[in-house]
Simulated assay, not measured.
Amino acid sequence: MRRTALAAGLTVVSVVASGCGIFSDDEPADLQVYTARHYDLEKAFDEFTEETGITVEFLDGDDAELLERLKKEGEDSPADIFMTVDAGNLWNAADQGQFQALTSPALDAAVPEDLRDPDGQWYGLAMRARTVVYNPEKVDPAEIDTTDSYAALGDPKWRGRVCMRDATASYTQSLVASLIDLHGRERALEIVESWVANDVQIMSNDIELLDAIDAGACDIGISNHYYVGRQLEDDPDYKVKVFWASQDGDGTHVNISGAGVTTNSDNAEDAQKLLEWLATDGQSHFVDGNFEFPVNPQVAPMELLAGWGEFKRMPVDAKAYGSLNADAVALLGEADYE
């Protein structure tokens, strides 16, 4: 297994059955994972090791930072798997030649077609819905538009009542990229400008946004669903509810956390086994700790999520999320959305 020095600013966590060994040359793990996802990975990887005997270490960092690291390391990279938290990032990594194509009937059967690369370079492993959230003491759900719930937050009736994430968030950028893809740039710009005209309150993270809604500082907003699940687990009286957006239209915007086997992996066989396990027997271990939805339709979501009811999701277009990201960023700037 190749080894390189660790870059500053990255966190390395070892999940090796025999104990610690942070990318060391002393009894190295069988698999090395570069991941921008850090939700309860220890539990999932420990379960995988227990079932298969294949040991795993992972290095935690920012998507863009880890991708640049992979590219710079080239053939000397120790990484066997690159895991990201946005479909656009998966597409981008594949477009830059960082994944190898897999042939896996197990993954093809477990992961819906729009949640995986058509050439088998990457696979979605967990779904997160970016949808409308609201304070039930301030908003009657009958008030919320069901055809295009995202655009409708620009209706003047919501003026001064809306909270959203900042323009630098990948979730915001992917949502806007999907609006460009669905409606064209001109209409997408009109939608974002209508949010700005409604004096949207911009929050630096989804927890801050949800806490503002819970406290009555704003009434409605857009958030990833799993943050609501986390908050409700800690406080069942938390005053935020999920509304599945655009159920009479294009469906609720969904993004994915996913992964692929790196081009320069020297243990691609075991790396593929890990991806297959995460998409099948390990799905619940991978998604439940973060209140995410399984990508595998044969795996039931955890009880809290199931209680919110089924929803129609917007098809995921990873190429659009990735290739239109720069356009989305420019559009947000043009609309003075900060």
Score class of each variant (00 low, 15 high):
94 A>V: 04
220 I>Q: 02
242 V>K: 01
271 A>T: 05
37 R>N: 13
89 N>C: 13
213 I>C: 12
63 D>K: 00
222 I>D: 00
296 N>G: 13
44 A>H: 03
125 L>P: 09
24 S>N: 03
52 T>Q: 07
112 P>M: 08
53 G>D: 06
327 D>Y: 02
62 D>H: 12
71 K>W: 04
245 A>V: 04
187 R>M: 04
296 N>C: 12
91 W>H: 11
218 C>H: 07
12 V>A: 14
39 Y>I: 11
277 W>L: 03
160 G>P: 04
93 A>N: 12
286 F>S: 04
333 G>I: 08
150 Y>K: 03
161 R>E: 15
54 I>V: 15
338 E>C: 00
279 A>C: 13
255 N>P: 05
224 N>E: 15
174 S>T: 10
190 E>W: 07
209 L>D: 00
65 E>S: 08
26 D>M: 02
211 D>N: 15
245 A>I: 02
67 L>I: 15
2 R>T: 12
247 Q>L: 13
286 F>R: 01
312 K>G: 15
99 F>L: 10
316 V>E: 03
246 S>P: 02
206 D>M: 04
132 V>R: 01
120 G>Y: 09
114 D>C: 09
126 A>E: 07
143 E>R: 11
233 E>T: 06
264 N>D: 07
247 Q>R: 00
300 A>V: 04
167 A>I: 11
48 F>V: 07
130 R>Q: 12
266 D>Q: 12
113 E>H: 05
248 D>P: 04
46 D>T: 14
7 A>C: 05
108 D>P: 02
279 A>W: 06
65 E>I: 06
154 G>R: 11
148 D>H: 09
319 K>C: 00
204 S>R: 00
187 R>Q: 14
92 N>P: 00
25 D>Q: 08
293 F>D: 08
4 T>P: 10
36 A>C: 10
152 A>V: 07
88 G>E: 13
308 W>F: 08
35 T>H: 11
195 W>A: 14
277 W>A: 02
166 D>C: 09
78 P>F: 04
186 E>I: 05
52 T>E: 02
104 S>W: 03
273 K>R: 14
97 G>A: 04
246 S>D: 08
136 P>R: 15
64 A>H: 06
7 A>E: 08
112 P>N: 10
23 F>E: 04
150 Y>R: 03
28 P>T: 09
233 E>W: 05
275 L>E: 04
188 A>K: 01
312 K>C: 14
219 D>M: 06
118 P>K: 05
69 R>H: 08
68 E>V: 05
166 D>R: 06
